[in-house]
Each structure stands twice: as structure tokens, then as C-alpha cells.
């Protein structure tokens, strides 16, 4: 009898239940936090940041702010990253990391003057940790700009022994870049066709330019000498075109060479910084516990 009653109540209750269901609360702060952490570790950073942002009104925790900022930094939304790193209070345990991340963000924005200004005005005063790392990034910024480099000794001082060789090479490269003067290249080609290209390092092109200009000039000369003036002028025009082209080509080759040197230099620096993750630490937010 009791079981029958029990079953009756059960049936009654379950039939009424859906209308009164107290739902699983997807929007409770704890569930939002769990889901945001999952998204963050699943590398879905934009959604993670948006979920963490939902929690800011209910609880302001520096870890949340830091993770939001980190998420925006990773997806390349640097203004938002700066905004959230900047919101981390000085009393927070993340203040040192946030300061270092701000330097990194300026780097990622190619704002090297911003790196230096932030380092001098804020980082030195506010950060208790990572001063060496900050100093390395500060010094590095000089390699990206045209400003005068600090002395080599001062420049290399924050770097480890293992890094010094490579950084020293970059320093020397910056001090004495392997640029070629486009003016010299042009003048050389005006005097001896093709020599400007050889000066830039394009030996084959230089030889071809020399031969073509010389050959057409000779044909023009030969025709004038033989009394074929019309043909002589035609060939003189062709020779002049090749001669002008050879000068223009030498100037352009020097400019291309210089652009290539600059690109390779900056690319090498960026690869080095990325390899070292801009001297920022690993945070271990997604490490297995």
C-alpha cells in the first residue's frame, strides 16, 4: 500500500515538476567561471574573455582581470589588453606580471617608444619582480628604432651569458648595418655600367648590364663609323635606354638590398623575442592539478 502511495505521489510530482523546475543555473558566477576557465584552456580566448567579463560586476578579482587581459593580448586586441592589465591594482599579486605583460603588449603593437616610456615611468617604480626581464626588453627596443644605441657594455649587461653572443651580434649588426648606398650604386653604374649592381652583390646582373650596354654602344659607334647615321642613332637610343636602365636598376637594387637587410634584422629579433616569450613567465593556468 505504501509503495503504491509513494508511486502515486511520484507520478503526480513528476507530472507537475517541469513547470516548477528550478533550472540548472548556467549564469551563476561559479558556473560562468568554470566555463570561462574551460574556454581559456581550450584556447578559445575571445569567448573566455567575454565570459570572465560577465563576472566583473559580481566579483572583481585580479586573477579575472589578468586572464581577461591575457586573452585579449593573445588574440591581438591590444587596446583591450592594455585596458585590463592597467586595471590590475597595485596591491595585487599579479601586478609584476601585469607590468611585464604591458611591456610585451607595447612590443606586439610595434610601439617601441611606448615600451621605453612605460618602462621608465611605471615599470621601474611599480614592479618588484622581473626588473631584469624588463631591462632586457627596454634595451631590445633600441634595436628596433633609429635612436642612438647605449654603449655595448650597458646594452648587454642584463642578458645571460648564453644570450650575450647572439645579442652582441644583433648589436653589431645594428651599429654597422650591411646597407649599401643607393647613391654610390648609381654613380658607380654611371661610370662603369653594371658596377653598381656588383657593388650591391648582384654580380650576374652586373655582368649582363655591362655586356648589353657595351655591346649596343659599340654597335652604335660601329654604325656611325661606317656612315650609317640613321642606324647609328637607333642603336645609340637603344644603348642609352640600357645605360639609363642600368643606373636606375642599380639604385633600385641598393634600396631592395637595404629593405631586405632591415626585414631580416627585424625578423630575427622578433623570432628571438617570441622564442623567449618576451621574457614573460609561464603562468600555468591550465596545468593539470
Amino acid at each position: 500500500m505504501k509503495i503504491t502511495e509513494l508511486l502515486f505521489f511520484f507520478m503526480l510530482f513528476t507530472s507537475v515538476n517541469p513547470a516548477q523546475t528550478k533550472d540548472f543555473d548556467f549564469s551563476s558566477p561559479i558556473n560562468i567561471k568554470k566555463f570561462a576557465d574551460f574556454l581559456f584552456c581550450d584556447r578559445d580566448y575571445l569567448r573566455a574573455a567575454l565570459e570572465y567579463e560577465r563576472l566583473i560586476s559580481s566579483e572583481v578579482k585580479d586573477t579575472l582581470l589578468f586572464k581577461i587581459a591575457l586573452s585579449y593580448s593573445i588574440i591581438g586586441d591590444y587596446p583591450f589588453a592594455i585596458k585590463y592589465f592597467g586595471k590590475i591594482p597595485y596591491s595585487s599579486s599579479y601586478i609584476n606580471e601585469a607590468q611585464l605583460e604591458l611591456i610585451k603588449t607595447h612590443y606586439l603593437m610595434n610601439d617601441y617608444y611606448g615600451v621605453r616610456s612605460f618602462y621608465n615611468n611605471s615599470f621601474i617604480k611599480e614592479a618588484n619582480k622581473y626588473q631584469l626581464e624588463g631591462n632586457k626588453l627596454f634595451n631590445f627596443s633600441y634595436l628596433f628604432t633609429k635612436d642612438e644605441l647605449p654603449s655595448k657594455e650597458k646594452f648587454l649587461s642584463p642578458f645571460n651569458l648564453s644570450e650575450k653572443d647572439e645579442i652582441s651580434e644583433y648589436y653589431d649588426w645594428k651599429q654597422d648595418p650591411l646597407y649599401k648606398s643607393s647613391t654610390i650604386a648609381g654613380i658607380m653604374s654611371a661610370i662603369i655600367p653594371g658596377s653598381g649592381k656588383m657593388y650591391v652583390g648582384e654580380i650576374g646582373d652586373g655582368i649582363v648590364a655591362f655586356i648589353t650596354t657595351t655591346v649596343f654602344s659599340f654597335i652604335a659607334y660601329d654604325n656611325f663609323k661606317a656612315g650609317h647615321n640613321t642606324r647609328g642613332w637607333i642603336w645609340a637610343g637603344v644603348a642609352a635606354l640600357f645605360y639609363g636602365g642600368n643606373i636606375y636598376g642599380s639604385v633600385a637594387a641598393a634600396q631592395v638590398h637595404n629593405a631586405k637587410i632591415t626585414f631580416e634584422f627585424n625578423d630575427g629579433l622578433n623570432v628571438f623575442l617570441q622564442k623567449n616569450n618576451y621574457y614573460t613567465p609561464a603562468y600555468g593556468f591550465c596545468d593539470e592539478k
Partner: peptide, 26 residues
């Protein structure tokens, strides 16, 4: 023993039912 078992099953079933409904809505 049996009635306790049934009550336990009911509670378990109810819990599942709560979750099912909210996930349906989602």
C-alpha cells in the same frame, strides 16, 4: 529496504529530470 530503495531512485530520477529540462531549454 525496498521503499528506501524506491525513494532513492525517485530522488535520483528527479535530479536527472531537473537537469534535463534546463539543458533542453539551453
Amino acid at each position: 529496504m525496498k521503499s528506501n530503495y524506491i525513494i532513492f531512485l525517485i530522488i535520483l530520477f528527479e535530479c536527472t529530470l531537473f537537469a534535463q529540462n534546463s539543458f533542453d531549454e539551453q
